[in-house]
Simulated assay, not measured.
Amino acid sequence: MPRPQRSEQFDPGEVCIVHVVQRCVRRAFLAGVDRDSGKDYSFRKEWIRRRMEALASVFAVDVLSYAVMSNHMHQILRNRPDVCCQWSDQEVAIRWLRVFPGRRLEEHLAEPTENDVQALVRDKERLAEIRRRLADISWFMRALAEPIARMANKQDDCTGRFWEGRFKCQRIVDEAGLLACSMYVDLNPVRAAMAESPEQTPHTSVYDRAKARQGAKLASAAFDLRPTPTDEAGRKIRDTPVDEIRQERKQKQRNPTGRMIRRDGWLSPLTLSTDKLSDEPEVHTGGLRSSDKGFLNMSWKDYWELLCWTARQSAEKLNPRVPASLRKTLQTLGIDLSMWRDLVWNWQRYFGNSVCVGRPESIKQHAAKTGHHHHRGQAAVRSCFAPG
């Protein structure tokens, strides 16, 4: 059966949450230790994380969870057209030009100027299309994958694909599916026997969140959302040697805004605010992410406790009894307590071939909404959830 059309899985015009998987070509370890040559490419994981962080500062897409592995990456993304609608035309223009500067007479400058921004603002038809693209997960993934491939090919002095093809996408249709998927993503290195616990899994969202609570900070990769004054750009072109401009740009790319931020400052907050209405966009104004909206009805403390308990449930150390403090959370979401560990650890068995993630009833509703009788995998997950 062919993969469903993107339009059936998510719509840039409505808020959607999706689980995205992008694999390296031939599933080679192009971001880890190459099994054939023995070369270590693990540093490319930080390339991917920083590019994700940079894009989170300009796209109307929230990064909820992520895990960068040696030959693939997982992300849980939420597009935010409601946030994008709150941005002014000037904000939309500078955000787009930071990611897609286009061709310029002076390519070595490659910094959007005030004139560039105003020229785009005057083109209302194109600006409307750009506003839609900034809330489109497909465009987010395009802006993430292509530069990484170019950098890797340049480093390896080769051409061809770095990623195997278009990304795999699964629509998450309820909170039960979102919690299970988030745990699955955060525990990917543990499941792959790359680490024994979540504290030892860099390049995952849970590692960033845990370190941030210990006070860890990092140099922000967020784009500078201020256009260069046109007069200043002109003087720089006239008076500054090209090599000096290029060197200055390279230094700025390491930390465009010169800020140190919390390690998880660019990620969506984990906990939903109880004092906010569900339809409030909660627009972020700090230039790090699109919104301040959380995604789970549970505290970080409870999430971390459940994650660490689930991580310890290997086949050799299986304790199917969920701690009493965590039972209420799972029962409220309709998850069978005895099946929780199996659901997360054996995710591929239940959702590996599914286009949708969630409770069977939610999956059925989404299938009907998209004109289908059912979705593949709908029956397989029934054993993991209590009857609706």
Rank of each mutant, 00 (worst) to 15 (best):
M1I: 08
P4F: 02
P4H: 07
P4M: 15
E8N: 10
E8F: 15
F10K: 06
P12R: 08
P12Y: 06
I17M: 11
A28S: 13
R35K: 06
S37W: 08
E46H: 07
W47H: 04
R50N: 10
A54P: 06
F59M: 13
A60D: 03
A60I: 02
Y66C: 11
M69P: 08
N71E: 11
H72K: 08
Q75F: 13
I76R: 00
L77M: 08
D82P: 03
V83E: 00
E91H: 03
V92Y: 02
A93C: 14
R98Q: 14
F100P: 01
R104Y: 05
P112C: 02
T113L: 03
A119I: 00
L127A: 03
E129N: 10
S138H: 09
F140E: 00
A143Y: 06
L144A: 03
A145V: 02
A149V: 12
D156H: 07
G160V: 15
I172R: 02
D174P: 05
S197H: 13
P198S: 08
Q200L: 09
V206N: 04
D208M: 00
R213S: 10
A216K: 04
A219F: 12
R226E: 05
D231L: 09
D239M: 06
T240Q: 07
P241I: 13
I245C: 05
R246P: 01
E248F: 05
K250D: 15
N255D: 13
T257W: 09
M260S: 12
R263D: 01
D275N: 04
E280C: 08
E282S: 11
T285H: 14
N297K: 07
W300K: 04
Y303W: 10
W309T: 07
W309A: 06
Q313H: 07
E316N: 07
L326N: 03
R327L: 00
T332L: 14
G334F: 02
G334I: 01
D342S: 09
W347A: 07
Y350T: 02
Y350E: 01
F351I: 10
F351H: 10
E361D: 08
H372K: 14
R376W: 14
C384L: 14
F385K: 00
G388M: 15
